[in-house]
Simulated assay, not measured.
Amino acid sequence: MHPSDTRFAQLLEGLDRQQIAQSVARHGADAYDKCFSSWDHLLALIFAQLSPAASLRALEVAWNAHAAAHPQLGTGRLHRSTLSDANQRRPLAVFTETFARLVGQLDRRLRRDGRTLLRLIDATPIPLGALHGWARSNGRIRGMKLHLAYTPETHQPRLLDLTPATRNDAEIGRRIPLERGATYVFDKGYCHYGWWSAIAEAQATFVTRPKTNMRLRVRTGRPLPPEPEREGDGFTLLADHEVALASKGDSRLGMGLRRIQLRRHEGGARLTLVTNDLTRPATQIAALYKTRWQIELLFRWLKQHLAIRRFLGHSEEAVRLQLVAAMITFALLRLALRRHCPRVPILRFVDLLRQGLFEPQTWAEVRALLSPRPTATRRRRRTAHAS
């Protein structure tokens, strides 16, 4: 790290320019924009995620105000017309491959830790206005869906797809690369018997909710734990059965199924879960499904703190590029936090970056700014412990 490195330059440490150049050559991404390369484009869209600029004009002014920092980044001045043209015709593949490589860097740490492979799967709507004439409506929203798989233990996102709002969730779920030993948690919108069988064949498990029209017949009951142990974090177990589909779909499932029924403490609503996991205790399976709320929190955080509700262009290509750039930015933030500031909340980290993206500062100085100073009580305790 050079002493003059800015906060923004250090955030970009996770990007490998050589690998990005290979992606650019493979997809011919710079064929029509030689004066505004894919690297320039990527940096501009990452900067847009962390700046308050809400339009191309505002982004142009904010970026060009820091021209002295551009040579260190290997880029130059920004022209809004050039960015607008690039948003129309640059291939999305360079950006998606960049995101996949960042996920790979996060994944290496996960494999070293040997943690449980938990994958939460869900989609969030991206509403679009009347200026996006190409957007479709599913009757509830007019726009797109952002589909993600998410590992909550390591805050690791995995971009699955960007689709029209009319696309069925189960169709996207089937594109997920399945991992042996992983547990996939998803809602009833991802109901597809063939995919469930594929998960079982991959020696993985799933936890979900059945659709209201799914008919199940009980094969055998399973004993519930003693009364005190039926209580989980916010729920009480009611029943645990091994079941089968009571329809023609049964022939498509070459695995055992289990139905777990529980009652939520808040509101008293009953909840039914279906899983192919026949070994874990019912309380653990219910707790796994409860973790699905964490991907909802991720979607909320992305919409509140990154630019995925206001767009710099109206074309479908521009919207897709900006959404993938948002996920690249989130992955870079998580990578920087893991490597340099592991105990710092992401919101405080982002707030500090935004206060001076182009200020020269080392990671040690960033940590010092983000670490709370010990109170008088803490200092007395440290002194007493040392003595």
Rank of each mutant, 00 (worst) to 15 (best):
A200M: 02
D40H: 06
H305C: 06
R140S: 10
A170D: 06
L237C: 05
T163C: 08
W301K: 05
R230I: 09
Y32I: 08
L245A: 11
T291W: 07
A65W: 01
R57A: 14
A286T: 04
D30E: 08
Q49F: 02
A130H: 04
P223K: 08
R263E: 13
L245Y: 04
H265Y: 01
L120I: 07
G356H: 11
P345R: 00
D161Y: 11
R101F: 07
L12E: 15
F36Y: 10
H155G: 15
A135M: 07
D351H: 10
V344C: 15
Q49M: 08
R174I: 12
D16K: 01
A202Y: 01
G173T: 14
I121R: 06
A58W: 09
A287G: 09
L352Y: 03
P91Y: 10
Q361I: 09
T6D: 09
D277P: 01
T383C: 04
M1S: 12
R57N: 05
Y289D: 09
L131E: 15
N64Y: 01
F330W: 14
E365P: 02
F206A: 02
D122E: 05
A384F: 02
G114W: 02
R219T: 03
G181Y: 13
A58V: 10
F311E: 12
K34G: 03
S247N: 15
A326H: 01
V61N: 02
T183N: 06
D240H: 06
P342A: 03
E266N: 07
G221R: 08
Q22R: 05
N64F: 01
D113H: 05
D40E: 03
T208I: 07
D33K: 02
L298E: 10
H2A: 11
F47K: 04
R119L: 07
A29I: 05
L12Y: 13
I46V: 11
